[in-house]
């Protein structure tokens, strides 16, 4: 990742969960961290997120869920991007128990951000996900 082109991030709430406080805070943290944020908002599907990734030429997808659906929806997002031929990493934000992290990692999720993550960690996590593309 070169300094001259800012990282482009698509942020979305995947599924029905309406808790958008965390995702909006993350959007501002990433923007303040020099990234370009495409905020899709609520009730997105894997298809609508993929459309946005293609249109916006995004480097990374951030999805948020506080509804305990991450083990289903996280891998679903990773697989949908792969099926669409997109090498774009997925970062999940929300309430994810520690023991689920290796399961999500094994499923190809590039990073997990829990509640209260400091801005520096949020930016670093997204940067690391982008740097790890193609691995």
């Amino acid at each position: 990742m070169a300094d001259e082109t800012p990282v482009r991030v698509v942020l979305a709430k995947l599924g029905l969960d309406g808790h958008d406080r965390g995702l909006k805070v993350v959007a501002r943290m990433l923007r303040d961290g020099g990234m370009e944020v495409v905020y899709l908002g609520l009730r997105q599907t894997t298809a609508s997120i993929i459309d946005a990734v293609e249109q916006e030429d995004a480097d990374v997808v951030g999805i948020s869920m506080l509804n305990a659906g991450h083990l289903t929806l996280g891998p679903l997002m990773v697989d949908a991007l792969a099926d669409a031929g997109l090498d774009v990493p997925v970062v999940i934000g929300g309430i994810v128990p520690d023991e689920d992290r290796p399961i999500l990692a094994a499923a190809g999720v590039a990073g997990v951000l829990g509640p209260g993550s400091p801005a520096a960690d949020v930016v670093a996590c997204v940067q690391a996900a982008v740097a790890g593309r193609g691995h």
Partner: peptide
Amino acid sequence: SWALGEVGRA
């Protein structure tokens, strides 16, 4: 279809 992964979770 929207309910996938969300039934009874929260």
